[in-house]
Amino acid sequence: MRVGVLTGGRDCPGLNAVVRAVVRKGVQEYGYEFVGFRDGWLGALERETVPLDIPAVRGTLPRGGTILGSSRTDPLAHENGVGRIKDTLAELEVEALVTIGGRDTLGTAARLADEHGVPCVGVPKTIDNDLPGTDYTVGFDTAVGVATQAIDRLHTTAESHKRVLVVEVMGGESGWIAVHSGLAGGANVILIPEQPFDVEQVCGWVTSRFRASYSPIVVVADGAVPKEGRVVLRGGATGQVRLSGVGEWLAAEIEHRTGKEARTTVLGHTQRGGSPSPFDRWLATRFGLHAVDCVRDRAFGTMVALRGTDIVRVPLREAVAGLKQVDPARYAEVGVFFG
């Protein structure tokens, strides 16, 4: 059997570990051949491929990014996109397709599998951890580690200058990175998209920390908004909206309202870059091993997922339905450290 592999959407650490595991087990145990599609669904549309064998994936376990390249191409938005995908697979004699991605990439895979009979198996990756079908996604743990290390470092400079430091992390619609890194890093305020925040309350918490001779750290997801409803957005070059700016806006508000000097650190794409954490390598490897088992069993239209410590199979449609956001009770747990 010949199997195709693609990585779609935004990059994150751990993608290469998935590809490595798929290829290693597929070749060694099942005798499969593999072909990699360049730049996600774009490669499947344009028939842009790279050979995938054991030498090609050797040494890639700790490597960030993706050796296959990625893009946010939606083949369903292209003229005869489904037909072109099917023609590519038929021409290359590809009998199964392992798709590694987030909500958009796997949502496309779900439609192709359910509505058009394309034999897809999904692997969940996104630093946002917002896929409802799995406990954790590839890339999330590394992003939390990067953000936590930054918060740890910022505590000392905040204390040295008696400043407020606002740390903006990624999280356009869900605040998992903010909650996990903020709690792990000892932040004094954590703001997430799920809970619109009161600027006056934030300033009250900041003032309270200064009374205790402590310089506060505020962690804010880039999709968080104040109760007043003001959202700070910046348009991307491709016409897509990129969330950014709430950290700078909030720092200016804090400084204006409290009289305390405030500075912003925007972590941005550093959360996506670099080598995957040990947990992400473990998770990505297990996902890859189980994904190729799905191919063997012809369990198409499914996604591998983490439930507790077990890897299970869930229907792709269910895995990408809705958005996994931070539960109010989970957010309330960390509130004891605010102010």
Rank of each mutant, 00 (worst) to 15 (best):
N80A: 14
N188D: 15
R2K: 14
V241L: 15
G247H: 00
G36M: 08
V35Y: 05
R72A: 07
A77H: 10
L15A: 14
T134Q: 04
D222M: 02
S160D: 12
R103Q: 13
I127S: 04
T49F: 08
T108L: 13
V189N: 00
R234Y: 08
G36D: 08
S215L: 05
G339C: 02
G9Y: 05
T60A: 11
L283R: 01
H161C: 09
D87I: 01
T156C: 10
R298A: 13
E29D: 14
E79L: 11
G31P: 12
A150D: 08
V220I: 13
R257S: 07
G273I: 04
K162S: 15
V220F: 05
V304P: 10
L97R: 06
I54F: 08
C203M: 01
C12M: 09
E93R: 15
I254P: 06
G81D: 08
V164Q: 00
P315Y: 00
Y30M: 12
A291K: 07
M303H: 11
D141V: 03
A110D: 11
E168R: 04
V138K: 09
Q271R: 02
W205S: 02
L6G: 13
R20P: 04
S244V: 09
E95V: 04
G139W: 06
P132H: 03
T285V: 02
Y32F: 15
D327H: 14
T207Y: 06
S160Y: 01
S181A: 15
I190Q: 06
P328N: 03
V167L: 00
D327R: 04
Q195S: 09
P62Y: 04
P124E: 06
E255M: 03
R286I: 00
T66K: 06
D293W: 00
G204A: 02
A221N: 04
T7R: 15
E194R: 08
R230L: 14
H290M: 12
P196A: 08
Y136G: 02
A110E: 11
V98S: 14
S215I: 01
P216N: 06
V225M: 13
L52R: 13
R307G: 12
P55K: 09
S275Y: 02
V202L: 09
G268I: 00
A252Q: 14
R317Y: 12
E200W: 03
L267R: 01
P124A: 15
R58H: 12
L97W: 09
L68K: 11
G69P: 12
N129W: 00
L250A: 09
G259M: 07
C120Q: 01
V167C: 00
F197Q: 08
V225T: 11
G133R: 04
D310P: 04
V169R: 06
Q201H: 14
G40L: 07
G335V: 05
D87L: 13
V18I: 07
G274R: 05
N80Y: 11
T108A: 14
V169F: 03
S275Q: 11
A329L: 12
Y214S: 15
G186S: 03
I85A: 13
P328M: 12
R38D: 07
R103F: 03
E194W: 03
L267Q: 00
S213Q: 11
R298T: 10
L154M: 12
V232R: 13
R286K: 11
V295P: 07
T137Q: 10
V5T: 10
C12K: 09
P276L: 09
